[in-house]
């Protein structure tokens, strides 16, 4: 059985699927990803499927599962590069991949992850401010946050 390589890219993991996916490969990828998210502390997962020519219900479900489990591990998942024919087929099949973020290509996927992590940092900073320092009058958000 072939395994899909998982690459580290900054604080994100990049999975580029270049092979015909067999069900066991799909399951193994799911496990690998969960482990790697924890061991690297990654905050985002990009799954590039621009080379994938079919996504059936099993593979589609993997995207949803990976998105759900990475969310539990405090990481966001973006599926990028879905081909038009694949998208049309998935819709026909009745699979809308609710809860899975998508982007046209890796670059845009990274942008989404960055935007999400910025928002998270701001939120965490706000929470930290709220916990530790009473908001100073007229001070606004601390310059260093």
């Amino acid at each position: 059985m072939e395994r899909v390589p998982v690459l580290s890219l900054g604080d994100a993991l990049l999975v580029s699927i270049q092979i015909d996916l067999q069900d066991n490969t799909v399951l193994a990828l799911q496990e690998d990803l969960a482990e790697r998210i924890v061991s690297t502390g990654a905050r985002g997962v990009l799954i590039d499927i621009s080379a994938v020519d079919i996504v059936d219900s099993f593979i589609g479900r993997m995207f949803a599962s990976i998105a759900a489990l990475s969310r539990l591990l405090d990481a966001e998942t973006v599926v990028v590069g879905m081909r038009p024919a694949v998208a049309i087929t998935l819709v026909e099949l009745g699979l809308s991949l609710a809860g899975v973020r998508t982007a046209l290509d890796v670059e845009r996927g990274m942008k989404i992850l960055r935007a999400l992590s910025d928002r998270r940092e701001v939120r965490q900073a706000d929470e930290a401010d709220a916990d530790l320092v009473p908001v100073a009058e007229g001070g606004g958000p601390a310059a260093g946050a």
């Binding site: 020519d53 996504v55 059936d56 049309i88 087929t89």
Partner: peptide, 17 residues
């Protein structure tokens, strides 16, 4: 057509599974 190919192959994948 490419879309019809994809639909057929996807159906075949479901049924073979």
């Amino acid at each position: 057509s490419l879309v019809d190919q994809t639909k057929l192959v996807t159906a075949a994948s479901e049924l073979a599974r």
